[in-house]
Amino acid sequence: MSWITSYPATTFMPIQATEIAKEVDLLYAFLIISSLISFVILIGGMTWFLIKFKRTTADQKSAYITHNNFAEFLWSFIPLVIMMVIFYWGMVIFEKLRVPPTDIAAEIHVTAEQWAWTYKYANGKEFYSSANDPLIVPAGKATKLILTSKDVIHSFFVPTFRAKQDAVPGRYTQMWFEPTQPGEYIVFCTEYCGTKHSGMMIKIKAVPSEEYAAWYHAEKKGADTPADKGKVIFAQRACASCHSIDGSRIVGPTMKGLFGSNRKFADGSAASADDNYLRESILVSTAKIVESYPPAMPLFQGQLTDEEVENLIEYIKTIK
């Protein structure tokens, strides 16, 4: 494809395919250089002192060596300052890596299993890595992945993005990235997951945003989207008898504007209504009782499949 970019190898590190990758590499370079300088000062100074102040006479061997308070303060305080700088710098980058921006262009569900990945788009498109299908994303725009696993812990790692996130059974994790240019990027599973772990590789195919939009809207599957499937389950399970979708109060909290809102619970705690909260509330409704509402909802753990729960969550996201 003409849009696939050939990146020149500039360092021993993988190419920097996102802006955050540059920040990660800068911090890494600082760690390497500061560690090298510290090593030279420590080992070089120790060697110099061993040679210069070697005790050779009886008087030298019996002499009492005093200490310098200022020197002792400096060699403790300076490393402390450097460590605090590294900690803060790393914290800032970690927050950027973990908190997605508000202008997400694509949200994709990625499910891991031995030894393949499944990716589902909001419009119903679904692909399997075992069929050599790449994960298609827009270049120059942010993509958010919601990850889970069917069996054991897997780990979704894109070296060129400097981004990695575990896929954990029974819960959702998330990661985001924004490829700066179109291209193909390798994804590794970096959590040992069985005999074919090393072969669990896929490609992320970043295409120009216009090409992505045309691909995304082509061959739409009509009402067969995860949200539409969730709407059917919502009706079949009679969820509307307790949860309104128009903001009115009935037995349970309304679904209108639920996703992303702040929830206050009967025990005084609070949490954001993210994917994990919705999953837990659907399967084990008594885990967190919303303030001023009775614990009336039945448990659906064992009654709904992971896919049905995922579809319900996608439908709830659309009720605004």
Rank of each mutant, 00 (worst) to 15 (best):
I78Y: 09
L74T: 03
V81L: 15
T318L: 09
Q165W: 01
N311F: 04
H243S: 09
V92Y: 00
F156I: 05
K205V: 06
A213W: 03
L36I: 12
I153Y: 00
S6A: 15
I86N: 02
Q303E: 14
M255G: 12
Q303V: 05
K203I: 04
C193Y: 00
P182N: 11
K203L: 14
Q301K: 15
T143R: 04
G230F: 02
M84L: 15
Y88G: 15
D274Q: 04
S34R: 00
L312R: 08
P169N: 14
F73G: 08
K22Y: 06
A116D: 13
F77W: 07
F39D: 02
V309R: 01
K54G: 13
H154V: 02
D228S: 14
E107W: 00
I104T: 13
D275S: 07
E219N: 08
E126S: 07
S292K: 12
K120N: 03
V290A: 14
R162A: 13
I233P: 01
Q16W: 00
S272D: 05
S149I: 02
K221I: 13
Y119I: 01
G222M: 10
Y185S: 13
S62K: 11
E113A: 09
A63R: 08
L26R: 15
P295V: 09
K221V: 11
I289W: 00
Y7T: 10
F161T: 01
H243F: 01
Y185W: 05
Y128N: 11
M255K: 08
A270W: 02
M200Y: 01
F234P: 13
F94A: 14
D103Y: 10
Y192C: 07
L135T: 12
L258S: 05
A122M: 06
F300T: 01
P294D: 12
S241F: 02
A238D: 08
A227Y: 00
A213V: 10
I86F: 06
L147A: 03
K288S: 14
K256F: 13
D166H: 06
I41E: 05
D275P: 04
K52C: 04
